[in-house]
């Protein structure tokens, strides 16, 4: 654990809490993409399945449970409790265009199988390489789901950014949410540089997806600094 990872996690937590509080206090989820929030709930669910199989630290377990809980609470508020305020007409990004390619990519490019090995898996050539069945401890399935979550997280904010570009504005509090979410990614990039130099740790899948994700926020960061700091709303 280094300071960049810790502040990155806390920034991520801040973003999630800001969004929950905004919806709760204003009794409204206007301007919030429910689709992005469903994707984030899916990201946390598929990534933190290892809660069931491996223990890393109390901090790690606690944060995972909080992230999952908050993600589902947000989805509940948007689609159930404050459904009447949900702006579905402007939340028109086709989420399946993200989930399906990302799902395919996570089978093809992951830490457990090369595409050729994956071909052998689906052809069931090697029993040892079977994803499921007797003798399997689910680790390959978890690994593919982890990869899926990493890829999906990198693009999960797109419905939200699409919604903002469609309506042409965002409330200040929504921009704070996006700022902390982007800050978390930027801090994680520094964390990976740190870990590479001091621990020799290097996770190419996480790093490439993290770079993509951070790039998606760059345009928003620019607007945030130049507009939101000086005015009430984010005009585009």
């Amino acid at each position: 654990m280094n300071i960049f990872r810790l502040t990155g996690d806390l920034s991520h937590l801040a973003a999630i809490i800001i969004l929950l509080l905004k919806i709760w206090k204003t009794r409204s989820c206007a301007g919030i993409s429910g689709k992005s929030q469903i994707l984030f709930a899916l990201v946390f669910t598929t990534r933190y399945l290892d809660l069931l199989t491996s223990y890393i630290s109390l901090y790690n377990t606690f944060m995972k449970v909080v992230y999952i809980g908050c993600a589902y609470a947000t989805v509940y508020l948007i689609y159930m409790k404050f459904k009447a305020t949900y702006d579905g007409n402007h939340d028109t990004f086709r989420a399946e265009f993200l989930v399906v390619p990302v799902g395919g990519l996570s089978f093809l490019v992951n830490h457990d199988f090369t595409p050729l090995e994956f071909l052998l898996v689906i052809m069931y050539v090697s029993y040892d390489m079977a994803l499921c069945g007797p003798g399997s401890n689910c680790s390959h399935c978890f690994q593919i789901l982890w990869t899926f979550s990493i890829y999906l997280e990198s693009v999960a904010i797109l419905p939200q950014l699409f919604m903002i570009s469609k309506t042409g504005e965002a409330e200040t509090i929504t921009t704070h949410y996006l700022f902390f979410l982007g800050l978390y990614r930027a801090l994680y990039l520094i964390n990976w540089i740190w870990r590479f130099y001091f621990e020799g740790f290097f996770d190419l899948i996480a790093i490439v997806a993290g770079v993509v994700q951070t790039i998606l926020y760059c345009d928003f960061f620019y607007l945030y600094v130049t507009k939101v700091v000086y005015s009430e709303r984010l005009p585009l």
Partner: peptide, 10 residues
């Protein structure tokens, strides 16, 4: 260390 099945980050 090339990360494989044990992921310690959030």
């Amino acid at each position: 260390i090339i990360a494989r099945t044990r992921h310690d980050e959030l």
